[in-house]
Nucleic acid binder design. Sequence first.
DNA 1: ATATATTAAGATAAAGTAGTCTTTAATCTT
DNA 2: AAGATTAAAGACTACTTTATCTTAATATAT
Lengths: 142, 142
Amino acid sequence: MSLSYSCIYGLRASVLLAGRQEDGFVTIREISNELEISFHFLTKVLQRLTNSDILESYKGPNGGVKLAKDASNITIREIIDCLEENFTIPECALGLPIFQNHEACPFHEDWRELKGKIEKAVDTLTLHELAERDKKIFISNR
Amino acid sequence: MSLSYSCIYGLRASVLLAGRQEDGFVTIREISNELEISFHFLTKVLQRLTNSDILESYKGPNGGVKLAKDASNITIREIIDCLEENFTIPECALGLPIFQNHEACPFHEDWRELKGKIEKAVDTLTLHELAERDKKIFISNR
DNA sequence: ATATATTAAGATAAAGTAGTCTTTAATCTT
DNA sequence: AAGATTAAAGACTACTTTATCTTAATATAT
Protein backbone atom coordinates (compact mmCIF):
# COMPACT_ATOMS: atom_id res chain seq x y z
CA MET A 1 0.00 0.00 0.00
CA SER A 2 1.62 3.17 -1.10
CA LEU A 3 1.72 6.48 0.67
CA SER A 4 -0.78 9.30 0.25
CA TYR A 5 0.35 12.59 -1.19
CA SER A 6 -0.21 14.16 2.21
CA CYS A 7 2.39 11.84 3.63
CA ILE A 8 4.83 12.27 0.77
CA TYR A 9 4.56 16.05 1.03
CA GLY A 10 5.03 15.85 4.78
CA LEU A 11 8.12 13.70 4.41
CA ARG A 12 9.66 15.93 1.80
CA ALA A 13 8.98 19.10 3.77
CA SER A 14 10.41 17.48 6.90
CA VAL A 15 13.61 16.50 5.16
CA LEU A 16 13.91 20.02 3.81
CA LEU A 17 13.47 21.44 7.31
CA ALA A 18 16.04 18.99 8.63
CA GLY A 19 18.54 20.40 6.17
CA ARG A 20 17.87 23.89 7.43
CA GLN A 21 17.47 23.42 11.10
CA GLU A 22 19.90 26.21 11.88
CA ASP A 23 17.76 28.65 9.86
CA GLY A 24 15.00 28.69 12.45
CA PHE A 25 11.50 29.21 11.10
CA VAL A 26 10.99 28.68 7.40
CA THR A 27 7.77 29.93 5.82
CA ILE A 28 5.41 27.39 4.35
CA ARG A 29 5.30 29.56 1.27
CA GLU A 30 9.01 29.05 0.77
CA ILE A 31 8.74 25.30 1.26
CA SER A 32 5.81 25.06 -1.12
CA ASN A 33 7.76 27.01 -3.74
CA GLU A 34 10.88 24.93 -3.38
CA LEU A 35 9.09 21.58 -3.45
CA GLU A 36 6.45 22.70 -5.95
CA ILE A 37 3.59 21.71 -3.72
CA SER A 38 0.27 23.56 -3.43
CA PHE A 39 0.71 26.09 -0.65
CA HIS A 40 -2.71 25.66 0.92
CA PHE A 41 -2.57 21.91 0.80
CA LEU A 42 0.91 21.85 2.29
CA THR A 43 -0.29 24.17 5.04
CA LYS A 44 -2.87 21.60 6.06
CA VAL A 45 -0.33 18.79 6.06
CA LEU A 46 2.16 20.74 8.15
CA GLN A 47 -0.59 21.73 10.55
CA ARG A 48 -1.02 18.09 11.40
CA LEU A 49 2.69 17.70 12.02
CA THR A 50 2.56 20.80 14.20
CA ASN A 51 -0.37 19.47 16.19
CA SER A 52 1.60 16.26 16.74
CA ASP A 53 4.53 18.29 18.06
CA ILE A 54 6.80 17.15 15.30
CA LEU A 55 6.94 20.69 13.99
CA GLU A 56 6.77 23.98 15.80
CA SER A 57 5.11 26.96 14.16
CA TYR A 58 5.16 30.66 14.66
CA LYS A 59 2.82 33.25 13.23
CA GLY A 60 3.58 36.69 11.94
CA PRO A 61 6.66 38.20 10.36
CA ASN A 62 9.74 35.98 10.63
CA GLY A 63 7.36 33.18 11.45
CA GLY A 64 7.02 29.82 9.75
CA VAL A 65 7.64 26.24 10.78
CA LYS A 66 10.66 24.32 12.05
CA LEU A 67 11.36 20.90 13.49
CA ALA A 68 10.33 20.71 17.12
CA LYS A 69 13.31 18.56 18.04
CA ASP A 70 16.65 17.64 16.61
CA ALA A 71 16.47 16.04 13.17
CA SER A 72 18.57 13.15 14.40
CA ASN A 73 15.79 12.29 16.84
CA ILE A 74 12.96 12.13 14.30
CA THR A 75 12.45 8.95 12.32
CA ILE A 76 10.53 8.52 9.10
CA ARG A 77 8.15 6.39 11.10
CA GLU A 78 7.04 9.36 13.18
CA ILE A 79 6.13 11.39 10.13
CA ILE A 80 4.32 8.49 8.50
CA ASP A 81 2.41 7.58 11.64
CA CYS A 82 1.23 11.14 11.93
CA LEU A 83 0.07 11.53 8.35
CA GLU A 84 -0.92 8.03 7.32
CA GLU A 85 -3.61 6.18 9.15
CA ASN A 86 -2.62 2.64 10.05
CA PHE A 87 0.42 2.41 7.86
CA THR A 88 1.66 -1.14 7.56
CA ILE A 89 3.76 -2.87 5.01
CA PRO A 90 1.56 -5.59 3.56
CA GLU A 91 2.18 -9.30 4.03
CA CYS A 92 2.23 -9.67 0.28
CA ALA A 93 4.38 -7.57 -2.01
CA LEU A 94 2.32 -4.76 -3.58
CA GLY A 95 -0.69 -5.70 -1.52
CA LEU A 96 -1.59 -8.34 -4.05
CA PRO A 97 -3.92 -10.58 -2.12
CA ILE A 98 -3.27 -13.45 -4.47
CA PHE A 99 -0.32 -14.87 -2.66
CA GLN A 100 -1.12 -14.38 0.96
CA ASN A 101 -0.74 -18.06 1.58
CA HIS A 102 2.91 -18.67 2.29
CA GLU A 103 3.39 -22.01 0.59
CA ALA A 104 1.56 -20.93 -2.52
CA CYS A 105 3.50 -17.74 -3.11
CA PRO A 106 6.52 -18.08 -5.39
CA PHE A 107 8.35 -15.21 -3.74
CA HIS A 108 7.00 -15.02 -0.27
CA GLU A 109 10.35 -15.58 1.41
CA ASP A 110 12.09 -12.91 -0.63
CA TRP A 111 9.40 -10.45 0.23
CA ARG A 112 9.45 -11.24 3.93
CA GLU A 113 13.15 -10.59 4.04
CA LEU A 114 12.88 -7.31 2.18
CA LYS A 115 9.86 -6.25 4.17
CA GLY A 116 11.95 -6.65 7.31
CA LYS A 117 14.66 -4.43 5.91
CA ILE A 118 12.17 -1.77 4.91
CA GLU A 119 10.47 -1.83 8.28
CA LYS A 120 13.81 -1.41 9.97
CA ALA A 121 14.68 1.51 7.73
CA VAL A 122 11.35 3.21 8.37
CA ASP A 123 11.78 2.76 12.10
CA THR A 124 15.37 3.88 12.35
CA LEU A 125 16.25 6.26 9.53
CA THR A 126 16.18 9.81 10.84
CA LEU A 127 15.47 13.07 9.10
CA HIS A 128 19.04 14.04 9.81
CA GLU A 129 20.41 11.08 7.89
CA LEU A 130 18.05 11.78 5.02
CA ALA A 131 19.02 15.41 4.91
CA GLU A 132 22.67 14.39 4.88
CA ARG A 133 22.06 12.32 1.80
CA ASP A 134 20.13 15.23 0.40
CA LYS A 135 22.05 15.53 -2.82
CA LYS A 136 21.92 11.83 -3.46
CA ILE A 137 18.35 11.24 -2.54
CA PHE A 138 15.70 12.55 -4.75
CA ILE A 139 12.36 12.65 -3.07
CA SER A 140 9.89 13.29 -5.82
CA ASN A 141 6.16 13.69 -5.91
CA ARG A 142 5.84 10.22 -7.42
CA MET B 1 0.91 0.55 -5.84
CA SER B 2 -1.63 -1.98 -4.81
CA LEU B 3 -4.55 -3.31 -6.79
CA SER B 4 -8.05 -1.89 -6.78
CA TYR B 5 -10.90 -3.93 -5.43
CA SER B 6 -12.28 -4.15 -8.95
CA CYS B 7 -9.11 -5.93 -9.98
CA ILE B 8 -8.98 -8.17 -6.93
CA TYR B 9 -12.60 -9.20 -7.45
CA GLY B 10 -11.93 -9.84 -11.11
CA LEU B 11 -8.93 -12.00 -10.32
CA ARG B 12 -10.76 -14.02 -7.71
CA ALA B 13 -13.77 -14.56 -9.93
CA SER B 14 -11.52 -15.59 -12.81
CA VAL B 15 -9.71 -18.16 -10.71
CA LEU B 16 -13.04 -19.51 -9.56
CA LEU B 17 -14.20 -19.82 -13.15
CA ALA B 18 -10.94 -21.51 -14.08
CA GLY B 19 -11.67 -24.16 -11.48
CA ARG B 20 -15.05 -24.78 -13.01
CA GLN B 21 -14.41 -24.49 -16.67
CA GLU B 22 -16.20 -27.78 -17.39
CA ASP B 23 -19.37 -26.42 -15.74
CA GLY B 24 -20.10 -24.02 -18.56
CA PHE B 25 -21.85 -20.81 -17.59
CA VAL B 26 -21.83 -19.91 -13.92
CA THR B 27 -24.18 -17.20 -12.73
CA ILE B 28 -22.70 -14.01 -11.32
CA ARG B 29 -25.05 -14.42 -8.39
CA GLU B 30 -23.39 -17.70 -7.52
CA ILE B 31 -19.91 -16.24 -7.80
CA SER B 32 -20.85 -13.24 -5.70
CA ASN B 33 -22.27 -15.51 -3.03
CA GLU B 34 -19.28 -17.79 -2.97
CA LEU B 35 -16.73 -14.99 -2.87
CA GLU B 36 -18.84 -12.69 -0.71
CA ILE B 37 -18.67 -9.82 -3.14
CA SER B 38 -21.46 -7.35 -3.86
CA PHE B 39 -23.45 -8.80 -6.74
CA HIS B 40 -24.01 -5.55 -8.59
CA PHE B 41 -20.44 -4.44 -8.24
CA LEU B 42 -19.12 -7.80 -9.39
CA THR B 43 -21.47 -7.63 -12.36
CA LYS B 44 -19.81 -4.41 -13.47
CA VAL B 45 -16.34 -5.85 -13.07
CA LEU B 46 -17.16 -9.00 -15.02
CA GLN B 47 -18.81 -6.92 -17.73
CA ARG B 48 -15.43 -5.35 -18.39
CA LEU B 49 -13.80 -8.77 -18.63
CA THR B 50 -16.58 -9.83 -20.99
CA ASN B 51 -16.10 -6.77 -23.19
CA SER B 52 -12.39 -7.59 -23.36
CA ASP B 53 -13.22 -11.11 -24.50
CA ILE B 54 -11.64 -12.68 -21.47
CA LEU B 55 -15.05 -13.89 -20.36
CA GLU B 56 -18.05 -14.94 -22.37
CA SER B 57 -21.54 -14.23 -21.07
CA TYR B 58 -24.98 -15.53 -21.76
CA LYS B 59 -28.30 -14.06 -20.69
CA GLY B 60 -31.41 -15.80 -19.51
CA PRO B 61 -31.95 -19.12 -17.76
CA ASN B 62 -28.85 -21.32 -17.68
CA GLY B 63 -26.91 -18.21 -18.52
CA GLY B 64 -23.98 -16.72 -16.69
CA VAL B 65 -20.32 -16.18 -17.43
CA LYS B 66 -17.43 -18.45 -18.31
CA LEU B 67 -13.85 -18.08 -19.48
CA ALA B 68 -13.68 -17.30 -23.16
CA LYS B 69 -10.59 -19.45 -23.67
CA ASP B 70 -8.75 -22.18 -21.87
CA ALA B 71 -7.62 -21.25 -18.38
CA SER B 72 -4.10 -22.34 -19.23
CA ASN B 73 -3.99 -19.61 -21.85
CA ILE B 74 -4.98 -16.72 -19.59
CA THR B 75 -2.34 -15.04 -17.48
CA ILE B 76 -2.86 -12.87 -14.45
CA ARG B 77 -1.46 -10.05 -16.51
CA GLU B 78 -4.41 -10.15 -18.87
CA ILE B 79 -6.90 -9.76 -16.05
CA ILE B 80 -4.92 -6.98 -14.43
CA ASP B 81 -4.40 -5.11 -17.68
CA CYS B 82 -8.12 -5.21 -18.30
CA LEU B 83 -9.18 -4.00 -14.87
CA GLU B 84 -6.30 -1.82 -13.76
CA GLU B 85 -5.30 1.19 -15.73
CA ASN B 86 -1.57 1.40 -16.33
CA PHE B 87 -0.55 -1.24 -13.84
CA THR B 88 3.16 -1.19 -13.18
CA ILE B 89 5.23 -2.43 -10.31
CA PRO B 90 6.90 0.67 -8.89
CA GLU B 91 10.62 1.32 -9.02
CA CYS B 92 10.61 1.67 -5.28
CA ALA B 93 9.12 -0.89 -2.93
CA LEU B 94 5.65 0.23 -1.77
CA GLY B 95 5.77 3.23 -4.02
CA LEU B 96 7.70 5.14 -1.39
CA PRO B 97 9.21 7.99 -3.35
CA ILE B 98 11.92 8.46 -0.77
CA PHE B 99 14.38 6.04 -2.21
CA GLN B 100 13.99 6.39 -5.92
CA ASN B 101 17.63 7.23 -6.27
CA HIS B 102 19.46 3.94 -6.59
CA GLU B 103 22.61 4.69 -4.63
CA ALA B 104 20.72 6.27 -1.78
CA CYS B 105 18.30 3.42 -1.21
CA PRO B 106 19.36 0.84 1.37
CA PHE B 107 17.45 -1.94 -0.27
CA HIS B 108 17.16 -0.98 -3.88
CA GLU B 109 18.95 -4.05 -5.19
CA ASP B 110 16.82 -6.47 -3.18
CA TRP B 111 13.70 -4.82 -4.48
CA ARG B 112 14.82 -4.85 -8.08
CA GLU B 113 15.46 -8.56 -7.88
CA LEU B 114 12.11 -9.28 -6.28
CA LYS B 115 10.30 -6.94 -8.64
CA GLY B 116 11.68 -8.98 -11.52
CA LYS B 117 10.34 -12.19 -10.02
CA ILE B 118 6.94 -10.67 -9.45
CA GLU B 119 6.76 -9.29 -12.96
CA LYS B 120 7.63 -12.68 -14.35
CA ALA B 121 4.95 -14.33 -12.22
CA VAL B 122 2.33 -11.80 -13.30
CA ASP B 123 3.24 -12.33 -16.92
CA THR B 124 3.39 -16.10 -16.90
CA LEU B 125 1.18 -17.53 -14.17
CA THR B 126 -2.06 -18.74 -15.68
CA LEU B 127 -5.53 -19.02 -14.24
CA HIS B 128 -5.20 -22.77 -14.67
CA GLU B 129 -2.14 -22.92 -12.46
CA LEU B 130 -3.80 -20.74 -9.88
CA ALA B 131 -6.93 -22.85 -9.87
CA GLU B 132 -4.77 -25.95 -9.44
CA ARG B 133 -3.29 -24.48 -6.29
CA ASP B 134 -6.80 -23.55 -5.28
CA LYS B 135 -6.72 -25.22 -1.93
CA LYS B 136 -3.36 -23.82 -1.05
CA ILE B 137 -3.89 -20.34 -2.29
CA PHE B 138 -6.19 -18.13 -0.40
CA ILE B 139 -7.25 -15.13 -2.40
CA SER B 140 -8.90 -12.85 0.05
CA ASN B 141 -10.49 -9.46 -0.27
CA ARG B 142 -7.45 -7.93 1.44
C1' DA C 1 -47.59 -15.45 -25.69
C1' DT C 2 -46.29 -15.07 -20.97
C1' DA C 3 -43.60 -15.48 -17.04
C1' DT C 4 -39.05 -16.15 -15.35
C1' DA C 5 -34.04 -15.90 -15.24
C1' DT C 6 -30.09 -13.56 -16.16
C1' DT C 7 -26.66 -10.17 -17.93
C1' DA C 8 -26.25 -5.12 -19.50
C1' DA C 9 -26.62 -0.49 -18.66
C1' DG C 10 -27.61 3.77 -16.41
C1' DA C 11 -28.40 6.70 -12.50
C1' DT C 12 -27.28 7.75 -8.05
C1' DA C 13 -24.97 7.76 -3.51
C1' DA C 14 -21.30 7.55 -0.17
C1' DA C 15 -16.66 8.01 1.14
C1' DG C 16 -11.94 9.33 0.65
C1' DT C 17 -8.28 12.24 -1.29
C1' DA C 18 -6.47 16.31 -3.40
C1' DG C 19 -6.86 20.92 -4.04
C1' DT C 20 -8.62 25.88 -3.65
C1' DC C 21 -10.39 29.94 -1.44
C1' DT C 22 -11.65 32.91 2.35
C1' DT C 23 -11.58 34.37 6.96
C1' DT C 24 -9.47 34.50 11.51
C1' DA C 25 -5.77 34.79 14.86
C1' DA C 26 -1.26 35.91 16.18
C1' DT C 27 2.85 38.56 15.74
C1' DC C 28 5.91 42.06 14.17
C1' DT C 29 7.24 46.73 12.43
C1' DT C 30 6.60 51.40 12.12
C1' DA D 1 -2.51 52.26 17.09
C1' DA D 2 -2.24 50.72 12.15
C1' DG D 3 -0.79 47.98 8.74
C1' DA D 4 1.75 44.03 7.08
C1' DT D 5 3.03 39.18 7.53
C1' DT D 6 2.21 34.60 8.50
C1' DA D 7 0.04 30.19 10.24
C1' DA D 8 -4.66 28.23 11.59
C1' DA D 9 -9.11 27.03 10.52
C1' DG D 10 -13.18 26.30 7.97
C1' DA D 11 -15.92 25.99 3.78
C1' DC D 12 -16.10 24.48 -0.55
C1' DT D 13 -14.97 22.06 -5.14
C1' DA D 14 -13.43 18.25 -8.05
C1' DC D 15 -12.29 13.69 -8.83
C1' DT D 16 -11.98 8.69 -8.11
C1' DT D 17 -13.44 4.41 -6.19
C1' DT D 18 -16.77 1.51 -4.29
C1' DA D 19 -21.31 0.38 -3.86
C1' DT D 20 -26.41 0.25 -4.56
C1' DC D 21 -30.66 0.47 -7.02
C1' DT D 22 -33.55 0.50 -11.00
C1' DT D 23 -34.61 -0.41 -15.66
C1' DA D 24 -33.66 -2.55 -20.15
C1' DA D 25 -32.37 -6.30 -23.09
C1' DT D 26 -32.02 -11.12 -24.07
C1' DA D 27 -32.88 -15.89 -23.60
C1' DT D 28 -35.50 -19.96 -21.82
C1' DA D 29 -39.42 -22.70 -20.46
C1' DT D 30 -44.08 -23.71 -20.22
